[in-house]
Structure formats: structure tokens, C-alpha cells
Write a protein that binds this DNA or RNA. Structure first.
Lengths: 196, 196
DNA sequence: ATCGTAAACTAACAATTGTTAGTTAAATTA
DNA sequence: TAATTTAACTAACAATTGTTAGTTTACGAT
């Protein structure tokens, strides 16, 4: 009864995610992954079933994490702005914890080969955006949020949060608290001073 | 003296850009590109030198376009906010005109194989961000822009503008004017109503 | 000590990749 | 009309791809 049954597998997945982040799933060969682990390519197959399995595990795991929290948020009694604040912090959390997997989710989901995997992922993604849309619309309705096109609002906030992993390196000069606080302010209140 | 010396080549580049957008440079084969043009793969080489040449032409052309306009903006006498407004419109312009090439620029620049090409691209990108940074800092200094971390401001705006191509399809319900206007307002003034 | 298993290895495969050589048909120019 | 160019084709190549088979090594449990 081993204590860490899939430890080596997890290592492979983490190394692969880092490589996928840099060059994308298609440009990374199983030999690249093996070399990064100082083993031969064939040895990987003692732990994984296929290169594709690695991608599935990376993408689906993170997607499910987002889905779980979004469902909590949606069912809460908080105001629309408070809900969006919670979503902003969720994205920052996951970005700080696992930027590589997040890059993979963003850039390589279309390389999911099994139709079931792709469908499952796309449903989670669509539902996530739809939940976000409902929150924005609710906020506009009850006067918390300015009367702009909801699509523009959703996409403006989500695209920033989704690509945060790209800037994580550069923001090492930046403290986590400043990131969390300023990001929230910029996304919610904008950057201008006049009219305020 | 042909009127359109590289017409067929341009077709190839446009078709390739569309495919690159969907699957990424590495996952698209020259046979895919040929099939999309209803010819055989070998026939492509009557017009192009290599698959890599296609990528270079797509990426460098768009990058130079951004660079040219950014240099104009930087040298103008406009206010910081007016400069940022101009940059927002620039991104929307190019996104509406050539979303495929823009996707390629964003996702596939790391597959530039020649060191000279990669260096040239990265210099343009770094300079672009540095110019943006100077505009933001100037705006903070003279009281146009709120006192947040400049990196957060830059990245929040740029990441939205750079991934606009991802949402272009969905915003077909949206008029171009609404997009331009609401995008400007959301990015500059945020979305909240209170405190205003 | 021995057994069993985990995890590495070498060697090889079939398929796919970007690309080249050489050819042919159609269109343009002289 | 003859000559030349454009742009397609077929066939093939060498390299790289993900993956499998079969083997070896090290180590914890019996």
C-alpha cells in the first residue's frame, strides 16, 4: 500500500505543463519531456498512457477547479461586485499556484483529441462565462455596475484574468498583496481620476 | 511587370494564418494548408520558401504595424489618456481587419526559428510595452491616472486588447461603434457606479 | 535469501513531417 | 506561331513523431 501512488506521474505532469507553457502542446515531444526529467522517452510510458493523457489531466483538473468555485459564488448571497471580486481572487490564486497548467488550459485545450474530453471542457468553459454574464447583468440591473454592453465587460475582465500567467514572472517585483489589491481596483474602477 | 506580383502568396499567407489561429503553428502541417487551398503540398513551394517563411511574414508585418503607430503616438503632444485612447482604437482596428494574423502574433511568435527574427520581434514587443509604460507613468505623474502600480495597469489593458481577437466572433451581435465606445469606457473608467 | 515490483533501459516500428526533384499543362509574351 | 513563364502535379527523401516490446536493474517485503 504505497503512500504516494502516482508521485512520479505528478512530476511528469508538472514538467510537461512547464514545457507546454513555453512551446505549446504540439511543439513539445515526449522526448523533450523525458529529457527534462533525465530519463528516456520510453520510460515515460511506465507512468502515463499517452502524451494526450497528460494534456487531459492538466486541462480538466484546472477547469474543474474553476467550475467548483464559480458554482459556489453563483449560489452565494453576495452582491454582484462582491461576486466579481471573489472571481478575481480565484484567478489570482490559481495563477500564483499553477501558472503552467493555466497557460496550458488557455492555449492547448483545442488539442484535446477525444470528443468527450473536448465537449466536457467546452461545457465547463461556456457555463463559466454564462455564470459570469448573469452576475454582470444582475449588477447592471440593480445599479451596482455601469450600463455597458455585458459582453464587453465580461471579456475585458476575463481576458485580463486568463492571461495573468503571462505577467506573473514580471510581477515578481510586485508583492502579492499589491497585485491582488491593484488588480481589483483597476478592473472594477478603471484607471482615470477625472469624473470621480 | 506584373500588377500583383505576390497575389497567390498572399492567399497562402491568409489561409495559413486562419489555420494557425485555430490550431497553432506547430499543429498545422503544410499539407493542411495545401488542402485548404485545394492544391498539393509540394505546389505551395512554387510560392513560398518554407513553412517558416509564412510565420515570419505574418508575425513581423503585424508587429511593425503596431510599432509604427506607437511611435507616432509617443511623439504626439496629446494627453496620456488621449494617447491610451488612441492605442485602444489601434488594437481594435487591427483586430477587426486581421484577427487571424493577430492570433498568430500572440500565440506563435516563439516558433520563429531564426534568432534574428526572434530578436527583432522581441525588441519591438519590449519597446512597445516600454512606450506604454512611459505613457502610464506620465499620466500618473500629472494626475490624469490613478496611483496604481503601472505594471498592473499596463498588463490589464494590454491583455484585454491583445486577446480581443478571441471574442471578435461573439461580438458580431455587437456593433463596431458600441465595441469601440464601451471598450474605451470599461478600460478607462472601470465598471462600478459607486464612488462616481 | 528470494520474490515481486517499480522504473529505468535499448531497439525498433509505422506514420507523419517539411522539403526537393523532375514533369506537365495552361497561360502569357515575343 | 513559337517561346517562355507560371503554377500545378507525382514521387520520393530523410528526419522526427508517438508508441510498443522485451530486457535489466534496484529495492522493499516476505
Amino acid at each position: 500500500m504505497p503512500m504516494k501512488p502516482t508521485d512520479r506521474k505528478t512530476e511528469i505532469i508538472n514538467v510537461a505543463a512547464r514545457l507546454f507553457k513555453e512551446k505549446g502542446y504540439s511543439a513539445v515531444t515526449v522526448r523533450d519531456i523525458a529529457q527534462a526529467m533525465n530519463i528516456k522517452a520510453a520510460s515515460l510510458y511506465n507512468h502515463i498512457q499517452s502524451k494526450q493523457e497528460i494534456l487531459v489531466l492538466i486541462v480538466i483538473t484546472i477547469a474543474e477547479e474553476f467550475t467548483t468555485v464559480m458554482e459556489e459564488v453563483q449560489q452565494s448571497e453576495a452582491s454582484a461586485i462582491a461576486k466579481i471580486e471573489r472571481i478575481i481572487q480565484l484567478h489570482i490564486d490559481i495563477t500564483l499556484r499553477n501558472p503552467d497548467a493555466l497557460a496550458c488550459l488557455n492555449n492547448d485545450w483545442m488539442h484535446l483529441e477525444q470528443e468527450a474530453d473536448l465537449k466536457y471542457f467546452l461545457k465547463m468553459r461556456t457555463d463559466y462565462e454564462e455564470n459570469f454574464r448573469q452576475i454582470v447583468k444582475e449588477g447592471v440591473r440593480n445599479g451596482e455596475i455601469q450600463h455597458h454592453n455585458p459582453e464587453v465587460i465580461i471579456f475585458s475582465i476575463l481576458s485580463t484574468l486568463r492571461t495573468l500567467y503571462l505577467w506573473y514572472n514580471k510581477t515578481k517585483s510586485l508583492s502579492e498583496n499589491t497585485l491582488r489589491n491593484d488588480m481589483r481596483n483597476v478592473l472594477l474602477n478603471g484607471i482615470t481620476i477625472n469624473a470621480r
